[in-house]
Amino acid sequence: MREVISGVLVLIGAAFMLLAGVGILRMPDLYTRMSATTKVATLGVGSTLLAVVVYFGELGIVTRALAAVAFVLLTAPVAAHMIGRASYFIGVPLCRETAIDELRGQYDLRTHELESVCFPELELQLPDLQVGRLRIPDGAAAAGRTLAEIELRRRYDVSVLAVCRGSHTIPNPDGDVRLLPGDELILIGPPERLDDVAEALKGG
């Protein structure tokens, strides 16, 4: 009985490892490859070590095998996170089918700290003004209209510093720049008026 269970566990482990191998070969970019290998290979090793536990069943060996499982479960995510983080910084590309990169703009590229973008120098000198970031949602009223048409400056005392679109940025945009859903606006203005703009642009 013990041999049967242990044999099944080894086979499951081997199958998972094969899947990890297929994953690392077939996935389109580094990040998906990493997701395939770390999780699946960890499961495979865990299963094989459980087979060791079942097969030997002596206290000393069981303890060592379980310690090894715990070690792998602890270290695999840490290693994957460090590699993924480092790769993101050095600009390893995402695959072409990527729909959204939610991390873009969230890392300070100089200090490598994770935070929302802020402009401390600017706010020091202009205590009444705030710099904000605003995303144009799908189906928003502002999508498809130009900056001149939505009249942020006249109606809300808010200026647009830049429009971030996909991977490029339009600095100091003119009134004839047409907003698209998914664009991100960098705005400057009084804090309460920025909230008004956020409300107004959100509306459908």
Binding site: A14, A41, G44, V45, A51, A65, A68
Partner: peptide, 10 residues
Amino acid sequence: GTVGMGMIAA
């Protein structure tokens, strides 16, 4: 490394 570990255990 991970697969090697599994092979050794097996």
